[in-house]
Design a protein around this nucleic acid. Sequence first.
DNA 1: CCTGAGCGA
Length: 275
Amino acid sequence: MTEVPREGSVANRDQISSSPLSLFVLKKMSEDRDPEYRCFIGGLAWATSDRGLRDAFEKYGHLLEAKVVLDKFSGRSRGFGFITFDEKKAMDEAIAAMNGMDLDGRTITVDKAQPHQGGAGRDHDGDRSRGGDRGYDRDRSRPSGGGRGGGGGDCFKCGKPGHFARECPSESSRGGSGGGRYSSKDDRYDAKDDRYGGGKDDRYSGKEDRYSSRDDRYGGKDDRYGRDGGGRDRYGPDRSGERAGGRSSRDGGSRGGPGGERHSRAPYDRPRAGY
DNA sequence: CCTGAGCGA
């Protein structure tokens, strides 16, 4: 009746032992879904490295990880990085203390990092909402220096946002133009478009020597004022993409020389190189 | 004196 057949027990034991699937356990990477205390650091100077990040944030708590995101296409910092604390209060202290602070000569933005659920495999996702926000605000107010006099800010003449001091409508002679940057298109774009679509083929044949010095363009003593040295092009974090796209349309992917690299070498510059 | 604005192998 209530007797349990031993034969069944033996058979059942054997079944478990012979089940290879039962021995496997689903183990994920070191990072479990348990949210770590990661912070997104934005507004970093181009010359800021992961060491600089850690050195600036390890004082608020023990950092499990401190890394500056580098651009694989340029090899240079993308201007933001991530730091991971092992404690929540440390993260909170760091955010509250370093947000809007000046690091490496530039005002940085410190905020909670967005969780990437895919790991390395991440596609181009235009929507960051992901169905779950984590305090991330896409329409956040720009620190703009945080009003702490860090270096960012609005118009230096009238202090009104939406325009710059050079284009301040409050002082600009409104002769013919009442808008400033909003009126008509910029001639500078026409000039750029002209050399790409103007039909001039010698634009790179004889001008290439100027780009040969692209390694010293970042060799300036500063990361924000040393750009106007030999570049006719204004503010450009990396114009290599534009140039590569322009020449590829002409070359069709064929290189006529061994020096067809996108960049000669790492544009690493040391502000304290002792130069 | 400022257009960098951004979330990674």
